[in-house]
């Protein structure tokens, strides 16, 4: 199980060069059954990362480019009258895939956004009164561009909350950039990417992750972190219990990637910023400025050894 994960990581890192940490976070998010929001400038490899993730996990995949004239029907699908059967048949939209890449999700109208986000939450869609189950597993990887806000519809807080993690890739370092520039083709051929997992294996891993030990001390730590965010003088939005759950799930997944069957505070700290930053400060984009993140401030206020003295 661990070797499969290591292989997956190695393959993604060979495509998304110089970002092992973000790759690992993204993978752990998917293994924890969470959706990802990747927020970065254009050309930083958002789409590449999403693409590679989907293909490596061996899942069906489709990409939707969100534009301002995208309709909910384009995402979900539409029921069309069939001459042969004399009945309405669903023409499934892009969302009927195991991995959906919603590119530039903030460009679409709120109506379309909410169609997608509802599907993310419920795991099923309704067309003309008929409910259709979405495939399992189901991941949404959305990207958005923090710059050039003209003509965008920023996701409201309630919908941001549905993404387990918000990631940003950031600029590569010199070595990585050199490798990227030296690569022969502008786009790596996606046919090279092998699927390392079957759906059954993926489910097995997810089950294993859900069984990872979480000691009371860890629960205390999560509670303490949430409580710090709720204090009156905190500038941050308060972390909800749902945020705490997401934090624990992500930390379990991270512990699994670290080859442990129990969670330690380091796991919480590793995933705290991607899991909580967009919940603490939904309207701010500290993409290049980790030190100023509210999540770092909150982390610094709790002693993991003795979280609730």
């Amino acid at each position: 199980m661990q070797t499969a994960v290591a292989n997956i990581l190695a393959q993604i890192e060979s495509v998304v060069i110089g970002k092992p940490h973000q790759v690992k976070l993204a993978l752990s998010c998917l293994l924890a059954k969470g959706h990802i929001l990747i927020e970065d400038l254009p050309g930083m490899g958002k789409t590449t990362l999403a693409n590679t993730l989907a293909l490596t996990l061996g899942l069906s995949y489709q990409r939707i480019q969100f534009t301002s004239d995208l309709m909910p029907a384009d995402v979900i699908g539409i029921a069309i009258f069939d001459d042969v059967t004399k009945s309405f048949l669903l023409h499934p939209g892009a969302i009927f895939n195991q991995v959906v890449l919603a590119d530039e999700v903030n460009r679409a109208s709120p109506k379309t956004q909410s169609a997608l986000l509802e599907a993310m939450e419920e795991g099923r869609v309704s067309v003309d009164g008929v409910t259709h189950q979405l495939p399992e597993p189901f991941f949404v990887i959305a990207t958005q561009n923090p710059m050039s806000h003209a003509g965008t519809y920023p996701l409201p807080e309630s919908q941001l909350d549905r993404f387990m993690m918000r990631l940003s890739l950031g600029f590569p370092n010199i070595d990585a950039e050199r490798k990227i520039l030296q690569a022969t083709s502008s786009h790596r051929d996606t046919t090279d990417i092998k699927a390392f997992l079957t759906v059954e294996q993926l489910r097995e891993i997810q089950l294993h992750i859900s069984q990872i030990t979480v000691a009371p001390a860890i629960i205390d730590y999560v509670i303490a972190l949430c409580r710090v965010s709720r204090q009156a003088e905190s500038q941050a939005k308060a972390l909800s219990p749902r945020a705490g759950k997401a934090l624990l799930a992500a930390a379990k997944s991270w512990a699994f990637m670290e080859n442990r069957d129990y969670v330690i505070p380091d796991d919480i700290q590793a995933v705290f910023s991607p899991v909580c930053e967009h919940r603490l400060a939904p309207q701010q984009h500290h993409i290049f400025d980790e030190a100023n993140e509210l999540s770092q401030h909150i982390l610094s206020q709790v002693d993991p050894i003795n979280p609730l003295p």
Binding site: I264, P265, D266, Q269, L299, S300, Q301, V302, D303, P304, I305
Partner: peptide, 10 residues
Amino acid sequence: VKEHAMTGEK
């Protein structure tokens, strides 16, 4: 001195 937010491992 252990920094306040430092975990045991670190």
